[in-house]
Amino acid sequence: MLSNYLKIFIRDGFKFLWRNKGVAFASVVTLAVALTITGFTMVFVNSGNQIVNHLQEQVEINAYVKNDVTRVDALNLAKEIEKMPGFESLEFVSKEKGILLLQERFGTEMDLNETLGGDNPLPDQYIIKATSPDMVEVIVTELGRMEEIDNIVYGKEIVDNILSFTFWAKNLGMFLISGVMLAALFLIMITIRLTVYSRAHEIRVMKFIGATNWYIIFPFFIEGLIIGLLGSLVAAVIIFFGYQNLMEYVILNISFIPLEYDYQKLYYTLAGLIAGGVFIGAIGSLTATRKHLKV
């Protein structure tokens, strides 16, 4: 008996999907559009975060050591700096290396050694990186307490800008994603509800003839599942190729934007999208059908 039901469900599932192909097609398209927008928003926000992270890595603190501090004492400072909260990495640039770096920048047209008369006015220097921009201020304060440090230079404005940009980028991203997701969910639910509503009469008749609830729900559930799968697959394909083309364009043409391919994140996003689409399709049609079962 169960195998008879199964045969009928499989046969009917495809048959009625085909007969209602207009409505089914519309649902698939709606789902695909909604999920494509959601997916692209997620990809964009993710890329935005990538840029933010990159910018964060750029923030450095330059701490210049007083001239009267011996080299040994200057090198010992590293131990104290490493203990500071928010410390990530440091680089010691001796005055000798400093002048070489400066010479490199000037090129061969000017001999610094000659111009300066053999003197090296540069101090020893630490280049310090913080774990995050909001820790920069902490490290700067700590450095300020050290007697051996003469001068601290860091892009205060840059740090402040990055901090507010990060704040906005992350929050706006979350806001955008949740907004788009909500809109997509709403759109999909309405589409499914309309699809089921167009067959409310059918459900009613089935009930009068003596069909059990699960007998009525099951085909709708399968149909919702198939529609969800098709819609999200279409969206996934569009996003996949869209991502590749957009990244290629950005990397080739706008080279100052520090973007990298992040296929792992992309695959996670697409997998989530497909799972979400199937889930919404199946659960949506289930709940929509249940509403019409009370006859």
Binding site: F16, N20, H201, R204, V205, G210, T212
Partner: peptide, 19 residues
């Protein structure tokens, strides 16, 4: 549903499945 299978109900407006 099992009661309804025992009662063959016929409506004035037929109530057939159109598709």
């Amino acid at each position: 549903p099992f009661l309804r299978r025992k009662v063959g109900f016929i409506f004035q407006d037929y109530q057939l499945l159109q598709d």
